[in-house]
Nucleic acid binder design. Sequence first.
DNA 1: CGGTTGCTTGAGATCCATCAATAGGAGTGG
DNA 2: CCACTCCTATTGATGGATCTCAAGCAACCG
Lengths: 250, 250
Amino acid sequence: MGIDLETQLRSPFFDKLKLNAPLDHDDERALRAIVQPLKHYDADTDIFVEGDTPYAVLAIMSGWACRYKTLASGKRQIVALLLPGDLTEPFGALPDYVDYSLVALTSVMVAPIAPAHLRHLAKNNAHLESALWRDLLMTQAANYERMLSLGRRTASERLGHLFCELYYRLKRVNLVADGAYDLPMVQSDMADLLGLSTVHVNRSLQELRASRMISLIGRRLKILDLEALEDASFFVPSAFNLDRQQSLGI
Amino acid sequence: MGIDLETQLRSPFFDKLKLNAPLDHDDERALRAIVQPLKHYDADTDIFVEGDTPYAVLAIMSGWACRYKTLASGKRQIVALLLPGDLTEPFGALPDYVDYSLVALTSVMVAPIAPAHLRHLAKNNAHLESALWRDLLMTQAANYERMLSLGRRTASERLGHLFCELYYRLKRVNLVADGAYDLPMVQSDMADLLGLSTVHVNRSLQELRASRMISLIGRRLKILDLEALEDASFFVPSAFNLDRQQSLGI
DNA sequence: CGGTTGCTTGAGATCCATCAATAGGAGTGG
DNA sequence: CCACTCCTATTGATGGATCTCAAGCAACCG
């Protein structure tokens, strides 16, 4: 219950929930009470792998992680990017075993939470319940958008769309400054996320740079012309912003 | 409360939930009590379209529907197939508006359910709660598999994988007889689902027929060699069967 | 019957993958 | 501080998977 934990929990996870429903200090305290001691994972280490039984739902406190699946042929597909504030699983349940792997893309701090505790909390706190469901719906919406990218967008559209998505998701948790954010992925990661080859990611990246919509130097991505990028990649911000009202559909 | 409604609700939706947790007649009755009058949609009619506010979570009682998104360029991507027993949305929440459309692929009967009622029911019935969450996890698993297909499987692998997926999903609700099931999709639907062109779906279909793994005549698909088809399309049944135990991960 | 819808086939174009090689850091050890 | 290695980014050349365009054909239907 020290300042340390409080500071860390206050950060992205609770902040993001607060965008979904009016939560006050009591809600925050209730949530904090069920968080287990934070855990740390080094970059490029597995959090769990295919076949594991997850020990808790993890709230990402800092750093990036991703969920991926592999084919027997060796091909890899990243199916979700987990950013600060994200939950690794739906808040109310844990599978007995997972059919995918979770890996830390950077050094990561996570807050393990027992889904049974979260469900219990939600049962007695309508605002929190609403916020958690809303978060789940947004995650689903992002999944559908990714399918649309994989199935129907061209390579540079996929890249552009990804950068827009990250822009909005990171802005929600205050990780965007001056239109720029850290992008701790190598090109082969982007390839596995977007269903492309590394070489082609490289070339598409150059297109986006050439048309002056983004700059990517080191691990820093800057969006130079958001509107143009959105148009070019068929990005619709509203597809991610489900939180128009506070109601939860009776 | 007539026999009619009882018979229909007993069918796929409740049956599928029963596979996830031990539910008895009382659970069934409680569930039936919150179902609103069934609604019917003709084939090829919209259930709702982008921008609509959904009036309820719909349990598909019979027939097929699908969720799709479109790009400004006109390209279409089906992001989910909704089969008998499926819920159109996560059981606990409804978005204020949807960024996709829902269309009936065949004549469809749906049971509208208010998520607030479903949540309330779940709060007082641990088995039902468990079954609903488990169902949600399975839906998620199917989504991840679809991403893997779209990103990393070849055309005929995608088709083969789809037929395996449908085989297992339909078997759960007793819609498979003698290794065969009705497939009420035209080739352009499959194309939009798998991120391919209609022409290429046609050609890949011929490959699968030539290798004697399936037969597709009229709207009836028969799996001739399940094992071969699974191997050829990197299908892993366990990726869809999350229901190994009855626990729900504390 | 004419019209529509879905399936099939051919030919050519395009996007993207694969293979292979080079180059630029960043770290490491001597 | 240099030699070495590893990792990532980059570039070129080639091939292949898939798309697009276009046409023909069968089944169905009012």
